[in-house]
Design a protein around this nucleic acid. Structure first.
Lengths: 142, 142
DNA sequence: GTATTTGCAAAGTGTTTGCAGAATA
DNA sequence: TATTCTGCAAACACTTTGCAAATAC
C-alpha cells in the first residue's frame, strides 16, 4: 500500500521511482514533440539505456493516465506520445515530414464542440482534433 | 486496361462489378453509420453471403480511396467505415454506446483549420475531427 | 522483507499480402 | 481469353500480458 502523495508535492511518476522510468520520462521530454513508443525505445537502447519495450509502453501508459502525456494517432494508427508540461487540454499541428509539433490556438474548436454538443442533443461530448501539414522548414526545403 | 468511366455514368464501384463487392457495399449502406471491417465481415457471413475478410478490407479500401466512404478511428485504433452518399467532406458525432452517428455542421471547424494553416505557416494542412458522446436515446435510457 | 517493477518471449489486435484458383468482361 | 477478383493462410506492425528474477522502499 502506497501513501497518497501529499498536497503540493511534486509528482514526477506514479508508483516507484526507478531508473528506467526516469529514462523514459526524460527521453519523452527531450523528444520535444510527439514520438512513438517504439522510437523512444530505440533511442533509449541506442543511448545505452537498456530498457525493455514493455517497460516503455507501461511507463507511457502511466504518464498518460496521470495526464502527463498526450496521445495522438498517426495515419497508420500508431500512437504518438508527447510530454505535457501543463495540465491543460491542448491541440497540436504536426509536420508530416519531420514530426515537428506546435501547439495551436484552439478556442474556436472548443467553442464549436460545445455548440455541437448542445445542438446534437448528445451528452458527455468528447472531441479529438488532429492537424497535420508541412512545417515552414519542410515546405521550403523540398 | 480499363476504359475510363464516361461522364455522367453512375459509378458504383471501381473495377469489376462482382457479387462480393455489391454485398460489401450494400452491407455498408445498410449499416447506416460507422462499422468496422470485422463487423461487416461477420454480418455478411452470418447473412449467408460468403465473403473473405480480405475481400471486405479490399473493397472498403477501394470505396475509401474513391471517396465513397469515410473513416474514423475508435478509441482502440480500430477503423470504422461509413458510406458517404454525397461527395463532400463531412464530420460526424458518434454515440459511444450504440454507435449512432450523425453528421454535424462543421463549417466553423473548416474555417478554423484554414486559419490555423495560415497562422502556423504549415502547408497542405489536413485535419481530422472526431466527436463522440451519448446520443439522446442513450443518455436517457441510462 | 515485501510489494512493485523489469525483461523476455509469447500471445493478441487489426490489417495487409502472396498466391493459386475462380470469375468477370 | 486476358485481366481482375477471391479466399486462405501466412506475414506484419503495434501493443499487451504471464511469469520468474531483480529491485526499490
Amino acid at each position: 500500500m502506497t501513501a497518497a502523495p501529499r498536497e503540493g508535492e511534486i509528482i514526477v511518476l506514479g508508483g516507484r521511482r526507478t531508473p528506467r522510468r526516469k529514462w523514459v520520462l526524460n527521453a519523452l521530454i527531450d523528444s520535444n514533440g510527439f514520438v512513438s513508443a517504439q522510437a523512444l525505445y530505440t533511442r533509449l537502447v541506442g543511448m545505452g539505456s537498456p530498457v525493455g519495450l514493455s517497460t516503455v509502453y507501461r511507463t507511457l501508459r502511466v504518464l498518460t493516465e496521470s495526464g502527463r502525456a498526450d496521445i495522438v494517432r498517426d495515419s497508420n494508427g500508431e500512437r504518438l506520445f508527447r510530454y505535457r508540461p501543463s495540465a491543460e487540454h491542448q491541440h497540436y499541428i504536426l509536420c508530416r515530414r519531420c514530426g515537428l509539433s506546435t501547439a495551436v490556438e484552439a478556442a474556436a474548436v472548443e467553442a464549436w464542440a460545445k455548440r455541437v454538443a448542445t445542438f446534437s442533443g448528445f451528452a458527455e461530448v468528447e472531441h479529438t482534433v488532429e492537424l497535420s501539414g508541412l512545417c515552414p522548414q519542410c515546405r521550403g526545403g523540398g
